Simulated scan of single mutants.
Amino acid sequence: MISTQALSKSAIFPVLLVLVLTFSVACSNQSASDADSGYGSTPSITSSPTKPSSVSESSTASTPTTLAQSHWSAIAQGDLTKVMSQYSESPTLHWIGGPLAGEYQGKDKIQAVWQKFIKAQAPLETTITNIKTTPGDGETRTVKALVTFNNGKNKIPVDYTLVYKSVSGNYQITEETWKIVKP
């Protein structure tokens, strides 16, 4: 028979573990959104196309930071439908560096660029560091990070900027900047 003391200790541990993990994620998200200049000092997040990020999407799916992480994950997975799902009606993609360099306006042109990239590079692993989310005018939020895409042959470090605007209560990408940085 299990003693009451042993039972209460075994029941408390999982609750404490959940509280500690929740607090850790909350602190991580807080520091990312409260950084005041440059990139924040947020810990890096590494994921592979077959392994989802450790952030729970069910509780934070509508935040620009989590949407950005989902966008980068979709790129890594080569999931064109998910990549395109966050764009507004008239988005702009600024691609700086590499063979796809250029400015692309509209979903059709952006989709064509992502098709080329995914065909040539996916699947990829991602390492995301220094995420910073800042508010803009009205319902606009900007998410910046250093995102490194790696397929084993190519390592592509990208200074990434996504501008989200709330449209009918949902954040959508209005502007995206993919700037390849030299390692």
Rank of each mutant, 00 (worst) to 15 (best):
Gly102Thr: 12
Thr133His: 01
Tyr104Ser: 15
Ser3Thr: 09
Leu162Ser: 05
Lys109Tyr: 07
Arg141Met: 14
Asn150Glu: 06
Lys119Arg: 12
Thr126Asp: 05
Ser168Tyr: 13
Thr148Gly: 08
Gln172Asp: 11
Thr133Cys: 03
Thr142Tyr: 10
Lys165Val: 15
Ile156Pro: 00
Ala122Val: 09
Ile96Lys: 06
Pro91Asp: 13
Asp79Trp: 14
Ser33Met: 09
Ser54Phe: 12
Ser56Arg: 03
Lys116Gln: 11
Val20Thr: 04
Asp36Phe: 11
Gly97Phe: 02
Trp114Val: 11
Ala122Cys: 12
Val55Ile: 10
Thr142Phe: 15
Lys109Gln: 14
Gly40Ile: 09
Leu67Val: 01
Ala68Gln: 00
Trp95Asn: 05
Lys165Thr: 15
Tyr87Ser: 10
Gly38Thr: 12
Thr42Gln: 15
Ile75Met: 04
Gly169Gln: 05
Tyr39Ile: 08
Asp108Cys: 02
Thr60Asp: 02
Gly169Thr: 03
Lys155Ile: 14
Ala74Tyr: 07
Lys51Cys: 01
Ala35Cys: 13
Gly138Arg: 02
Phe23Glu: 04
Ile173Arg: 12
Pro49Lys: 10
Val55Asp: 02
Gln105His: 14
Ser62Gln: 04
Tyr164Ile: 11
Pro14Arg: 11
Asn150Thr: 06
Thr174Met: 14
Trp178Arg: 05
Asn154Trp: 13
Ala32Asn: 03
Ala61Asp: 07
Thr81Leu: 05
Lys132Gln: 10
Thr177Gln: 11
Ala120Leu: 13
Thr50Val: 03
Thr133Gln: 09
Ile110Gly: 08
Ala122Lys: 13
